[in-house]
Computed example of a mutant assay.
Amino acid sequence: MSVRKPNFELLRIIAMLMIVTLHYNIHADALLQLGVPASKVQIFATVIETFCITGVNVYVLLSGYFLSQTNIKLSRILKLICQVYFYTILISVAMMMVGTYTVGSDDTIYKTAQYLFPISSEHYWFVTAYVIMYVLSPVLNAAVNALSRIQLKTVIIGLLIWFCGIKSIVPVMFVTDHAGYDYGWFICLYLIAAYIRKYDVVLFFNAKRSALVFLISSLISLAMSLALHYINLVRGGFIYYSQVPTHYNFIFTLTGALGLFSVFRFLKMKENWFANVVRFVAPFTFGVYLVHMHLEIRNRWVEWLESLIGPVPMDNVLFFAWHMIRCVIIVFAAGIFVDWIRKMIFDFIGRVMKDTKLFKFIRKWDEKIC
């Protein structure tokens, strides 16, 4: 059994922290608003936004990098789907028990469908895209192994032009562009990561240049966000394009993600207690997402934390930053703890049901697939 590399696992943790930070900014209503003069806190939040927006792409790149040389077993796919159901159903039941469930009489059927079919209904858009990518990974891996280097590169370039290139320069919203919130973009990222791993592609020569790519990409996205907001404020227009610099499939969001990914690829971590802690925590990061982005929680967790540590300070940058850091750490730590409990429950069920017909059938299919 291969040992998880701590440098990549640390990046997985950082990527999820970046994602939680993005959600904090959104639900704290701290980002720029078109047609409204920017406050210092909104400018600061936008700075954080443009540096953290790469988190989703990095998380998918990591998945593609490792899954592209892994035999995807039926048991792993089922475990992933069961993990999603564990949270969609259990959290809903818990919210009902404490009397904070938000479903109303007019949307009961639709919300019930979102809990019973969380992947099909995009209960979590990220999970829907990620699970589809995960299920398709054997097909993608077969394509990566069968195609020549030039063929695979051509496919990736074509996908990048379609998903990323055109939308990044044309200030018009296309019907087929979902801003990177879909499995099409995830598949593109998966193939990029698979290409990097298969041919051991060295991105940006070294860690320093990789960090510079990440920094410059983020600063360009920041400059564009601020400039487009100002132009809209003064002259109007750019209502759609002002949001493009923080889309997941924007060109500089991609280059920033590749730069950050490359930094940690060059990073050499010592084998010590910190590396072991990183290895322990990283596998639970997906659970952090599932907890804080549940339909019953996503729009309320900032409000709940306000009752614990005070309201979001919108008139002081330092106080806002301190509030944000505490909220992100609390949400991340709580998600890690809850998913650790979930894993113990799953492990217990696995031991109890190990010799049942169902589990024997799944193991048999794993052997056939592999």
Score class of each variant (00 low, 15 high):
Lys343Trp: 08
Cys52Leu: 07
Ser92Thr: 14
His123Asn: 14
Ile187Gly: 00
Leu228Ile: 09
Met1Lys: 08
Phe286Thr: 08
Glu367Val: 11
Cys82Thr: 11
Val338Lys: 00
Val281Ser: 08
Tyr65Val: 04
Ala179Tyr: 13
Tyr59Asp: 00
Leu226Phe: 12
Lys111Gln: 14
Ile349Leu: 15
Ala207Phe: 07
Ile192Glu: 06
Ile330Pro: 02
Gly259His: 02
Phe264Pro: 02
Ala211Glu: 10
Met173Arg: 14
Phe261Cys: 04
Ile91Val: 15
Ala45Asn: 05
Tyr248Arg: 04
Ile150Val: 15
Ala275Pro: 10
Phe8Glu: 03
Arg298Met: 13
Ser137Pro: 05
Asp315Gly: 14
Glu122Ala: 10
Tyr181Arg: 09
Arg326Asn: 12
Met95Gly: 05
Val41Pro: 01
Ile220Ala: 05
Gly99Gln: 06
Leu228Gly: 02
Ala94Thr: 10
Ile251Tyr: 05
Thr102Val: 11
Phe264Asp: 07
Leu152Phe: 02
Leu147Phe: 15
Leu152Glu: 07
Phe284Asn: 00
Val98Thr: 14
Glu49Met: 09
Val331Pro: 00
Tyr199Cys: 06
Glu49Gln: 15
Thr102Met: 12
Leu31Asp: 04
Ile345Gln: 06
Cys164Leu: 04
Ser225Gly: 12
Ser39Pro: 01
Gln151Leu: 09
Thr46Gln: 07
Cys370Asp: 13
Tyr241Trp: 13
Tyr110Thr: 12
Leu152Ala: 04
Val155Asp: 08
Phe319Ala: 14
Leu78Arg: 09
Ile72Tyr: 08
Arg12Gly: 02
Phe348Pro: 05
Tyr190Gln: 08
Ala38Cys: 10
Ser217Phe: 02
Ser75Asn: 09
Ser137Cys: 06
Leu22Asn: 11
Leu32Ser: 04
Ser217His: 01
Ser63Glu: 02
Leu90Thr: 12
Trp304Cys: 11
Ser262Asn: 07
Val84Leu: 02
Asn299Met: 11
Tyr130Trp: 10
Thr112Ala: 15
Ile132Lys: 06
Phe361Ser: 13
Leu159Arg: 00
Leu136Glu: 08
Phe126Cys: 06
Val263Pro: 01
Pro283Gln: 06
Pro138Ser: 11
Leu160Met: 12
Trp273Phe: 12
Leu308Pro: 00
Ser218Phe: 06
Val20Thr: 07
Val234Gly: 02
Ala113Arg: 11
Asn7Lys: 03
Ile220Asn: 03
Cys188Phe: 07
Thr176Glu: 12
Val98Ala: 13
Val281Lys: 05
Tyr230Asn: 09
Gly256Phe: 02
Tyr181Trp: 13
Val47Asn: 03
Glu122Phe: 11
Arg149His: 12
Gly256Met: 01
Met95Thr: 14
Ile309Lys: 13
Ile216Pro: 01
Ser221His: 05
Val234Asp: 07
Tyr101Trp: 15
Ile196Lys: 00
Leu267Asp: 00
Ala211Asn: 06
Phe274Lys: 12
His294Pro: 10
Pro138Leu: 07
Pro311Cys: 09
Glu271Asn: 15
Ile362Trp: 05
Ile251Val: 14
Arg197Gly: 04
Ala146Gly: 10
Leu152Cys: 07
Val277His: 08
Ile329Arg: 08
Tyr183Gly: 03
